[in-house]
């Protein structure tokens, strides 16, 4: 084996422990079921070693190798998700409520399971002891989504849509999409760091601690900066002519 390949292989092996921890954390954060997480792990491993360890070969040492691999795996996750499920992604609200909410949202909205089926799956897999009623309450805290999977016109009995009014859902989903676009437009008027800060906190559902770590900022003043940036955004949205109701819906979708 050529010495360069041997070196890259050794580098890969030396990082296996970190890689598996990152893969597990990314899977958890994005609500992957165990089988999907296993599949993602294998898929990621292949990507990391393909083309003679190209990922490792490209590394120039401008960051810690562990950080670089973490970003690579996070980027790979986007590719994996698109490859498996198209444009589906968990909502920020579900992420903020933790892995159970992400998993529940995924089962109901992406996979089209009824709440009772989703509850059964989650309990059997040991993810929760909550009853269907309690899971329903959790689901109600999440934004209503359009299913990521094409629905059959005539259900054969196994894949009923979630227990919500479908026509209303679609209208709401449209409003939410519209609100998201308007927010995206107005966000651009804020300074870049404020934009990133708000997107990380509200769009991506990160905690303030995570945002602070991600941007290398002190945590305490960040609360005030976030509040200020949100107030500025509200002001821009009002300026853009958005109605009070639309504004409330938009910010609720964003910040809940």
């Amino acid at each position: 084996m050529p010495p360069e390949r041997q070196r890259l292989e050794a580098l890969f092996l030396s990082q296996l422990g970190w890689i598996e921890r990152v893969v597990a954390a990314v899977s958890r954060r994005n609500g992957l079921a165990r089988d999907d997480a296993d599949d993602f792990a294998s898929w990621t491993t292949l990507r990391l070693i393909e083309d003679d360890y190209a990922v490792f070969r490209k590394f120039r040492g401008e960051s810690a190798l562990t950080t670089y691999l973490t970003v690579v795996i996070a980027m790979l996750f986007r590719d994996y998700r698109t490859h498996r499920w198209g444009r589906w992604r968990p909502s920020a609200a579900a992420r903020r409520r933790g892995p159970l909410a992400v998993r529940l949202e995924t089962l109901v909205y992406r996979d089209g399971l009824r709440l009772t089926q989703a509850g059964e799956l989650l309990r059997t897999a040991g993810h929760t002891d909550l009853s269907d009623r309690q899971l329903g309450a959790l689901l109600n805290e999440l934004p209503i989504r359009q299913s990521g999977r094409p629905q059959q016109v005539a259900s054969s009995g196994g894949a009923d849509p979630p227990a919500i009014e479908e026509a209303d859902d679609l209208v709401l989903a449209d409003e939410v999409a519209m609100a998201r676009k308007v927010i995206g437009d107005q966000l651009k008027r804020l300074p870049p760091e404020e934009q990133v800060m708000l997107r990380m906190r509200y769009w991506e559902g990160m905690t303030v601690v995570e945002v602070a770590r991600g941007l290398g900022l002190p945590q305490k003043p960040l609360y005030r900066r976030l509040d200020r940036a949100l107030a500025d955004l509200r002001h821009f949205l009002e300026e853009s002519g958005m109605s009070q109701e639309g504004l409330r819906a938009a910010l609720t979708e964003w910040t809940n």
Partner: peptide
């Protein structure tokens, strides 16, 4: 991708 990585780290 950045948010995912930052959360995981």
């Amino acid at each position: 991708a950045y948010a995912n990585a930052a959360s995981v780290i």
